[in-house]
């Protein structure tokens, strides 16, 4: 879970390097998840973290299986919660 990932463009420009849980997440997505989980549109920081961990759960699971650099879309996950542009063009890999 604490292994880092790198998201990059086709020409290897890094967009994000860090832990899955630290990915930039849309505030709206966190709020939506918090409402689903806690019925709370204004979560405290711990509930916010938990909401983020639930949003990124699928990505964390996929991260464990990643052996090479692959296209993000190949993971077949709904990543619309990510505050990143051009998701369809990004690649993901696990980094130390």
């Amino acid at each position: 879970m604490a292994k880092k990932i790198r998201l990059s463009t086709k020409d290897e420009q890094s967009v994000f390097i860090g832990k899955v849980i630290d990915l930039p997440i849309k505030k709206e997505s966190i709020k939506k998840m918090s409402i689903t989980l806690f019925n709370d549109p204004e979560p405290c920081v711990i509930h916010e973290s938990y909401s983020v961990s639930k949003l990124t759960e699928g990505l964390s699971e996929q991260q464990k299986k990643l052996k090479t650099r692959v296209k993000l879309t190949s993971l077949e996950l709904d990543l619309s919660y990510l505050e990143l542009v051009n998701l369809d063009d990004l690649y993901i890999e696990v980094v130390k």
Binding site: M1, K19, C44, V45, I46, S49, Y50, S53, E57
Partner: peptide, 22 residues
């Protein structure tokens, strides 16, 4: 991190406490 460890354990079906606070 304590909070992330607690979440990870919970994801594996182990319900313990991290003791972290807001």
């Amino acid at each position: 991190q304590s909070i992330a460890l607690g979440f990870e354990l919970a994801r594996h079906g182990i319900y313990a406490s991290s003791g972290s606070a807001c």
